[in-house]
Design a protein around this nucleic acid. Structure first.
Lengths: 154, 154
DNA sequence: AAATTTGGTTGCTTTTTGCAACCCTATTGA
DNA sequence: TCAATAGGGTTGCAAAAAGCAACCAAATTT
């Protein structure tokens, strides 16, 4: 009766969700992208229970999304830092944020205004693109070798 | 002691995760993108418990990600179809799939080869882009008006 | 008329979550 | 030197959610 695991699923989305698909993990990654590195800071900023935070940080470290680094001379403090794998979730987080901003806008706050550091201009809307950069919707794509009618109408 | 809700969080990522951030919801959406519409088909293809599936489908309908449509003359059958809001999760799902393919590749299956229906060519890697389409990493962006040093080193 | 399909609901057990309390190791500081 | 505090946890307990199996009712098939 345990929660189902997807870590050996043939589907890479399922495997990805096994690592960052629970309620807290992706928020921890997001917070890390904002610069948070310390246990107590994650706890305060997310309002997460300490045991859950501990479990999630451990899992994220085990999965290579974060790394645990001892800081300070005597090793009693540590930081949790994004790895390359964790930083690579940037597109996922931004896509999710743009979706949330579009479909569940906050009545109080404007959508987050991420900008390119070099030009100062806002970033683009994330989308699936063809080889030339043209935006593609769900219906514009197919899977070679798969019976395709199922995805064509709707 | 209830599970924390994020539906009124000021963070749009948290609000998005409140709708599709649990273990099953995004997989249901993914399956719907593959063309699945029927309760029994979701159940068989995902291997999800019926009560959980029922709960998730209801939640996704309540949140406007799926719509429940009666089909057949006598209304005893229905289909769950993606709404525009649900289809708009395409970029999120593809970003997550590409991340999973890159960092947790399956030993058995090659990464899914999504292609543009018009050209037949593979789709691009999803990434955050500046206004000109140049790829941006986490460190290339900033939030106007926010003290920024926190995100600069890492 | 009986079996099957579809879309559920109900009961029950195992896990997970969330909160509070506690622990151990520095470090501060009076 | 001894107490207080901060950081990073662990433990215990109650509530909630997940998972499985059994059951249900309407429609369809045989």
């Amino acid at each position: 009766m345990a929660k189902k695991r997807f870590d050996d699923s043939p589907c890479s989305v399922a495997r990805a969700l096994d690592e960052v698909g629970d309620w807290w993990s992706l928020l921890i990654v997001l917070q890390a992208m904002y610069g948070t590195r310390r246990y107590v800071d994650f706890q305060r900023e997310l309002g997460i229970a300490k045991n859950i935070l501990c479990d999630r940080l451990t899992r994220l470290v085990d999965n290579g999304v974060l790394s645990k680094v001892d800081v300070g001379e005597h090793g009693s403090r540590c930081e949790y830092r994004l790895t390359d794998k964790g930083r690579d979730l940037f597109a996922v987080v931004v896509a999710l944020r743009q979706w949330g901003d579009q479909w569940n806008p906050s009545s109080e706050r404007p959508p987050l205004d991420l900008r390119d550091r070099a030009s100062g201009r806002p970033i683009r809307q994330i989308c699936v693109q063809d080889a030339d950069g043209k935006p593609l919707t769900l219906r514009d794509v197919f899977l070679p070798g798969v019976g395709d009618g199922e995805r064509s109408s709707g």
